[in-house]
Design a protein around this nucleic acid. Structure first.
Lengths: 217, 217
DNA sequence: AATCGTTTTTAGACAAGACTAAAAATATAT
DNA sequence: ATATATTTTTAGTCTTGTCTAAAAACGATT
């Protein structure tokens, strides 16, 4: 049996391991999980014992195939629940994370798969993140950062990289939502900000905001 | 914060305390929870510390108002989730218990109340058990045991006392479900069995089965 | 290659929740 | 009322997951 805590470590290692195929460092895990490095070392040993991770002292961790699948299935649950909360229970996208953190640990294959069916086999969660299927696979993201669009080009807001409360509330406040069509009107070299236009408004977004907006064409 | 384990104890004490206003014994709790009496003593002390229970050494436990409310809210969640699983996710009534045991511990007021609304503010779960409201209250059961019906009388199957797997599967196999109209045709004094009739069939049920069927008139 | 700073691991401690075995309190029976 | 049986509690141990403090390994610099 994989414990709740182990699942949380698997998830974190999975996420950190995505960018770059290199092993994940103890400190990186500790920082992301807001825990101490010594705790990470302990847990990582346990994951290795269970064949969920490959661990070499002082050299970081990678997930085994088994570990990667386990992580993907937790992420699958997390994202399905998030979508359920938004679509069926009137949660807004900045309220779902905390609850989904709990729901993702519920153990029942039938539950996940029925939930998946109930939601119509969705491919993306409320933040545009892809939802892994039963086998842990998902279609690669094919959206591009809005800063990589030439001025005059437009596309659909498909994914937000930062899904923190504050950022999502900023988007709410400014009437930006997934699915919106956005056109890039101007790039300002002084502060790297962007002028954009949606169906309902014209506005300036800072570079920091732009870095988190991904557009599908 | 009330832990998952504490919630399970509260729930058990609540259930055991229902029949009779007398204090619940350590052993009774231990047996119901399949744990050891010494573990119960430890936990009951903790509940008393937190003002969730009244505990006098060697004399058993009762819940405080606060503890009773906490227990009722866990039961509320359990029953709402059970109904959700049956109504929305194609679970049958003998499959829901284990999953609901997990879901009942999810902490989010918004989640429970939205779920309640999503299900249309139901009053009873798939086994006919009443669902407590936000304040922990529920309308008293007004169904009677089928053995207390005179022959010739009929009513609607409203509640099953035993909601174990085996019993529910027995009912499935014999096409008996909540909401069915049942008429008592005959009582057999030799083995206290009952002959009953539904819209689709005539059958004999043992006394043991009859003890678990409750009818609303 | 020796040193300094950083990262990682080890060793030992703690809290929660469970257990076993033994002691204490209560209940029952003669 | 005393002995016996049962129930409950206490005392001490274990596991899981965390922590702190100290030790060890790494790696960058000279």
């Amino acid at each position: 049996m994989v414990t709740r805590s182990e699942e949380n470590y698997l998830k974190t290692i999975y996420h950190l391991g995505k960018q770059g195929t290199i092993a994940v460092s103890t400190n990186a895990i500790a920082e992301k999980m807001e825990t101490k490095a010594s705790s990470v070392t302990d847990m990582v040993k346990k994951l290795a014992e269970k064949n969920l991770a490959n661990y070499i002292k002082y050299q970081g961790v990678t997930l085994t195939n088994e570990g990667r699948l386990a992580a993907a299935l937790v992420i699958r649950k997390h994202r399905l629940w998030e979508l359920f909360l938004v679509e069926k229970l009137n949660f807004s996208w900045d309220e779902v994370h905390e609850v989904a953190e709990q729901l993702e640990h519920i153990k029942s294959l039938k539950l996940v798969n029925e939930l998946d069916a109930f939601l119509g086999y969705p491919t993306h969660d409320p933040h545009g993140d892809p939802i892994p299927d039963k086998d842990g696979n998902y279609s690669p993201i094919n959206s591009v950062n809005i800063l990589d669009l030439d001025t005059g080009k437009e596309g659909i807001l498909a994914f937000v990289k930062d899904s923190s409360d504050v950022f999502l509330k900023y988007l709410n406040k400014n009437n930006l939502a997934l699915g919106d069509t956005i056109k890039v009107l101007d790039f300002e070299p002084f502060d790297n900000s962007l002028t954009i236009e949606t169906k309902t408004q014209k506005m300036i977004i800072s570079n920091e905001v732009a870095q988190n907006l991904y557009i599908s064409l």
